[in-house]
Amino acid sequence: MLPSISVITPSYNQGQFIRQTIESVLSQEYPRLEYIVVDGLSTDNTLAIAKSYGNRLTLVAERDRGQTDAINKGLRLAIGDIVCWLNSDDYFLPGTLMAVGQFFANHPNALWLTGDCQIVNESGQVIQEPVRQYKRLLRSLVPAVYMGVTNTICQPATFWRRSVHEQLGYLDESLRYTMDYDWWLRLLTCQPPAVSRQLFTAFRIHQASKGGSEFEKQFAEDYETLLRHYKSPMVRALHRWHNQAIVEVYKRIK
């Protein structure tokens, strides 16, 4: 039997993109889907778009303390066997939820699954393909490498069993950029992820996104997150060196 899946979308003033996000979830036609949109009282047309879907989704519209708080609200409301979050400027590719549901149905002991994702720009054109291929290559190595040296997990292409929150709690709301990396490292203490080579999602980078405009701050917080979980001086040095190299690359391609 296919597990139920809950998808959480945190949103704030993403009227330009959120319709595509919502459509990408609902068009999956997954038979046991719960979709929760948590909006921080957007001042653009985001709420009007979300409300237009009626009871096809659950809309929570209230002030929050930022993206991580919004995600946690959705995760606490969720009742699906499998959970994930999909930001309001990203979108699923066709067939994603069915592939995810079938994986967990066939692997009852698997705790979490991560797949591949395209990187796209504001208009949905594929960009930074070498970056995607590089991370894909790293994910073929052991978790200590691809989780310690750098965060190669694609956040919108990652799914886990909701039951793990009873053991690990929820996302760390003190983190603005790397709540996902911290969560992966906490999940890793329970079990390495199952890695799929299938493209699950499109991850959008645009001028207003944190990954597009604040990447240097993001990598700084990324390193601080690593320090919480890895004591090895070698891993810490390699991670810091890798971050510095990636920042220089991003300065040239953005």
Results as ranks from 00 to 15, higher is better:
residue 8 I to L: 10
residue 9 T to E: 13
residue 13 N to M: 01
residue 13 N to E: 09
residue 23 E to P: 13
residue 25 V to M: 04
residue 28 Q to D: 06
residue 30 Y to K: 06
residue 34 E to N: 01
residue 35 Y to G: 08
residue 36 I to A: 04
residue 38 V to W: 14
residue 41 L to Y: 00
residue 42 S to Y: 10
residue 46 T to K: 11
residue 52 S to Y: 02
residue 55 N to Y: 14
residue 55 N to E: 15
residue 66 G to D: 12
residue 68 T to R: 14
residue 72 N to S: 02
residue 78 A to M: 14
residue 78 A to I: 12
residue 81 D to P: 06
residue 86 L to K: 13
residue 87 N to I: 12
residue 88 S to N: 03
residue 89 D to R: 00
residue 90 D to Y: 06
residue 93 L to W: 05
residue 93 L to P: 03
residue 96 T to C: 15
residue 97 L to Q: 08
residue 107 H to W: 04
residue 111 L to R: 05
residue 122 E to N: 03
residue 125 Q to W: 07
residue 128 Q to L: 09
residue 130 P to R: 00
residue 131 V to L: 05
residue 131 V to P: 09
residue 135 K to L: 06
residue 135 K to W: 14
residue 138 L to T: 04
residue 139 R to P: 09
residue 140 S to R: 14
residue 161 R to H: 13
residue 168 L to A: 07
residue 170 Y to S: 12
residue 175 L to V: 12
residue 177 Y to N: 02
residue 178 T to L: 02
residue 179 M to P: 11
residue 181 Y to S: 09
residue 183 W to L: 03
residue 185 L to F: 07
residue 186 R to V: 07
residue 187 L to H: 11
residue 196 S to R: 03
residue 205 I to N: 05
residue 207 Q to S: 11
residue 207 Q to Y: 02
residue 212 G to W: 13
residue 213 S to I: 02
residue 224 E to A: 15
residue 228 R to N: 05
residue 229 H to S: 15
residue 229 H to P: 15
residue 232 S to A: 12
residue 237 A to Y: 08
residue 242 H to L: 01
residue 244 Q to N: 00
residue 246 I to N: 00
